[in-house]
C-alpha cells in the first residue's frame, strides 16, 4: 500500500520517535517499498487458520508466593540519566 508523509508522521508519534522532515520523507519511501513487498501475504488463503503468536504452547507461569530480594535501589538507579533522591527524574507532567 502507498503511505503518505502525514501517516508516517502519525506513526512516528505513536512510536515516540522524533524524525526530521527529510527523515520522514525517506521513511515514507522505504516503508512504502517494504509494505508493497509484504503485501504478497494477501495472496495466501488463511481462512480458519489460528494466528501463531508463539512457537511454544505457552501458559502463564507462576512462582511460589514467597518474598525474594529485589534489585537494591542504588543499583536500579545506577544507569538513570537523571536521579532525584531515590527516584528517576522526569519533567513535570502536571502544573
Amino acid at each position: 500500500m502507498a503511505l503518505d508523509i502525514e501517516q508516517v508522521r502519525w506513526v512516528s508519534h505513536l512510536a515516540r520517535l522524533k524524525l526530521s522532515d527529510p527523515e520522514l520523507a525517506i521513511m515514507t519511501r522505504q516503508l512504502g517499498a517494504i509494505l508493497e513487498y509484504v503485501g504478497q501475504l494477501r495472496d495466501v488463503a488463511t481462512e480458519g487458520v489460528e494466528p501463531m503468536a508463539h512457537p511454544l504452547p505457552v501458559a502463564n507461569v507462576f512462582r511460589p508466593d514467597e518474598p525474594v530480594p529485589s534489585l537494591p535501589v542504588d543499583e536500579a538507579l545506577s544507569n538513570a540519566p537523571v536521579r532525584l533522591g531515590d527516584f528517576f527524574g522526569v519533567p513535570a507532567i502536571l502544573d
Binding site: 506513526v11 512516528s12 512510536a15 520517535l17 522524533k18 521513511m27 522505504q30 516503508l31 509494505l35
Partner: peptide, 20 residues
C-alpha cells in the same frame, strides 16, 4: 523527552523497524 531521546539514540535500521 521520549521522542527526542529515541530519535537521537536509535540508528536508521532500528528506527525503520520500530516504525514498521
Amino acid at each position: 523527552l521520549y521522542e527526542a531521546s529515541r530519535g537521537e539514540g536509535f540508528g536508521p535500521e532500528v528506527r525503520r523497524r520500530i516504525m514498521l
